[in-house]
Design a binder for these strands. Sequence first.
DNA 1: TAGGCCATCTGGTCCT
DNA 2: AGGACCAGATGGCCTA
Length: 154
Amino acid sequence: MEMQSRLLDSTLIHFVSDINLMDFPQKYALGAKQQVDDNSSSPDNQTRLSDSPWSRDLEDGVSTAQHLVMGSPKYYSRGAHGCTQSKRRRIITMVQRQAANVRERKRMFSLNEAFDELRRKVPTFAYEKRLSRIETLRLAKVYISFMRDLLENT
DNA sequence: TAGGCCATCTGGTCCT
DNA sequence: AGGACCAGATGGCCTA
């Protein structure tokens, strides 16, 4: 049992090293700086993620929108220039547009939370900065293949 | 300064 | 009708 976990540990280290060389060239292999861990309070990450971006809009954005909608401005869904009407034209108010923006920010926020969760699951090895989203996906893919191979060969 | 990454806005489409 | 999801556009920040 302990033997197995030790084996797994060392294999993982090799795995991460391999990934390091394969997918993340010298850019991340420098190792001089401390890794920006997802759990740590990376200013970059934290400010971005915990800023509750939508609350801002709920507070001032919508109120501005409400202000703007007093004049009954309408958004036409096609061609911002609003001249030609397509059959599926959807008319929305400023308030609705603002609300949609807030929902979209919430959606992207939860997407980023999921990415952060995934970052914590895949092994990283002294990268100097946090994995980008595309790097996270690629690493996760390789990691899953690696683990599957490991299971099949034991 | 160019390129990568990301947040945000926006309109289109699909689904309930 | 309205929300969820998606993709394109845009602008800001950071790094080599």
